[in-house]
C-alpha cells in the first residue's frame, strides 16, 4: 500500500496526515495501530513500557464509535475505563480522568444515565472521545476526529488535543479540515506517480 514511508515524531507534537480520498490515510492509521500487519519495516515507540508492544500505548479513535446502544453512556465508558490498560511513557504525564468529569468537559453529562441508543451521532462521538480521557495513553491516533461534531464540540476537542500535546503526548490524525494544533507536522499522501520524495525526519 505504501512505499518509502518513514517519519518520526517527538513527544508533544502532532502529525496531521492529509491526502485525497482513498489514498490510504485510514490504512496508515490502522497500520500504526497494529491492526494491519506491516509487509515491511517497523514501528517503534521509544520510552514506552518495556515488553509492551507499541499498540498498547495507543488510543485509536476511528470512524466507528464502539458504543453499545443497550448500555447507558456511563456503563459504556466505565467498561472501557476498566478494560483498557493504561500506558505510560517517558515524558508523558497524562492523568486518568473521572468519567463524569470527562462527560462534563465534552458537554454530555446530562446523558450519563441514558441508554446510548438515545444519543445523537455527535453525542456518541463525544462519548467515544471520553474513552481517550479516562485511560491515559501517550499516543492518540485519530481518524477524522471532527466528523459529526458541531463547532463548539470541535473547539472542545482541539482544547483536549492541545492539552494532550502539552502533557507530552503524541497525536497522529487524518483530517480534511484545518486543525489549530500546536506543533504540527504535515504528512501529505500522494499517488505514486508524483515525484518520489523521501520523507525526511521531522525537525524538533
Amino acid at each position: 500500500m505504501f512505499e518509502d514511508l518513514s517519519f518520526s515524531l517527538e513527544g508533544g507534537s502532532a502529525l496531521v496526515v492529509t491526502g485525497a480520498n482513498g489514498i490510504g490515510k485510514s490504512s496508515l492509521l490502522r497500520t500504526l495501530a497494529g491492526l494491519v500487519p506491516l509487509a515491511q519495516g517497523s514501528i517503534r515507540l521509544e520510552g514506552g513500557a518495556p515488553d509492551t508492544p507499541p499498540q498498547e500505548h495507543i488510543h485509536y479513535f476511528g470512524h466507528q464509535d464502539a458504543v453499545k446502544p443497550a448500555l447507558s453512556a456511563l456503563e459504556n465508558l466505565q467498561f472501557w475505563r476498566n478494560f483498557c490498560a493504561a500506558a505510560h511513557g517517558s515524558g508523558f504525564s497524562g492523568d486518568p480522568m473521572e468519567p463524569l468529569k470527562a462527560f462534563d468537559i465534552l458537554g454530555i453529562e446530562h446523558t450519563a444515565q441514558l441508554p446510548a441508543a438515545f444519543l445523537s451521532a455527535g453525542q456518541k462521538r463525544r462519548l467515544s472521545l471520553c474513552r481517550l480521557l479516562v485511560t491515559p495513553r501517550p499516543v492518540w491516533l485519530m481518524d477524522e476526529p471532527t466528523a459529526a461534531l458541531d463547532r463548539v464540540s470541535e473547539s472542545q476537542l482541539l482544547d483536549l488535543m492541545n492539552a494532550h500535546l502539552a502533557a507530552g503526548g503524541l497525536i497522529v490524525t487524518a483530517t480534511h479540515s484545518d486543525l489549530a494544533l500546536e506543533k504540527t507536522l504535515n504528512l501529505h499522501l500522494q499517488t505514486g506517480d508524483a515525484a518520489d520524495l523521501p520523507l525526511e525526519d521531522a525537525p524538533q
Binding site: 498498547e56 485509536y60 466507528q64 464502539a66 453499545k68 478494560f83
Partner: peptide, 13 residues
C-alpha cells in the same frame, strides 16, 4: 460491526 474488536485487540489484554 461497531469497532469494539479493534479496541479490544489494542487494550493490552
Amino acid at each position: 460491526d461497531d469497532g469494539t474488536i479493534d479496541l479490544m485487540l489494542m487494550a493490552g489484554r
